[in-house]
Design a protein around this nucleic acid. Structure first.
Lengths: 116, 116
DNA sequence: AAAAGTGGTAACCTTAAAGTAACTTATGGG
DNA sequence: CCCATAAGTTACTTTAAGGTTACCACTTTT
């Protein structure tokens, strides 16, 4: 189980390891607009459980895509925001979306236009 | 379990469903150079079992990314090739790779250059 | 003092993907 | 007629991701 040599140096696969999680793209999408509190994220993605949301956030944090700020306040307040590294993913996600939309619109195999 | 409303219309996630499989990016990468026989693919990706390779190829075929041509020959010969639809993914994969490489090279958050 | 809001954690369960190993089918060559 | 080769398939097990439910810690409001 340790000999995925092919995996080790394939940048595309390393990238997918960062964003391939079941909910990560959605979470990144939510955070791309504003920094958000835990509960705000959860409201926007109701079908994710708090446990899994926590896990995904921890992984995104460990991978340096988001950071977590804890405020000492009345009821607890924790805010998640994209790091610069995380922001650098946004055009990539846009590109991935754009490909799918292109494919749906045209019959196939057309040239993909990058969104701006 | 059926109410992933958020999933349903997120193009990025739909795209990841096509290429997010454990081995799909690697397989597409192998096929991007030549059409390849089953055994040739397996030699290039030794750590994938024949069972899983078959499954992944069937899924890629069902999604219209590759096609399978069976030749009536001496020992069996089956060849897999990218469809035009599959080829339209190549720039996307290149972009994904390029992002990772950019990130490794520079300290972070730089503008990503599309490969040509 | 009790309740309520926020952001969790712990213990446990389910399921889907992946892996292993042995068997199968079709074909041509010797 | 038997064997080798290519391309699988079948049956079974393992693993990892995700899900459910219940509980905890801290603070403020009533």
């Amino acid at each position: 189980m340790g000999n995925n040599l092919y995996h080790a140096d394939c940048p595309a696969i390393e990238t997918l390891a960062l964003i391939g999680g079941r909910w990560k793209v959605i979470i990144l999408h939510v955070l791309s607009k504003h920094a958000r509190r835990f509960g705000e994220i959860n409201v926007r993605i109701p079908s994710i459980s708090r446990k899994v949301l926590t896990e995904q956030l921890r992984e995104l944090e460990a991978d340096g895509l988001i950071n977590r700020k804890q405020y000492k306040e009345h009821p607890q307040k924790v805010e998640y925001a994209l790091t610069d590294f995380g922001k650098s993913l946004c055009p990539l996600l846009a590109y991935i979306s754009a490909w799918k939309k292109n494919v749906e619109g045209n019959s196939s195999q057309d040239i993909i236009q990058l969104p701006d």
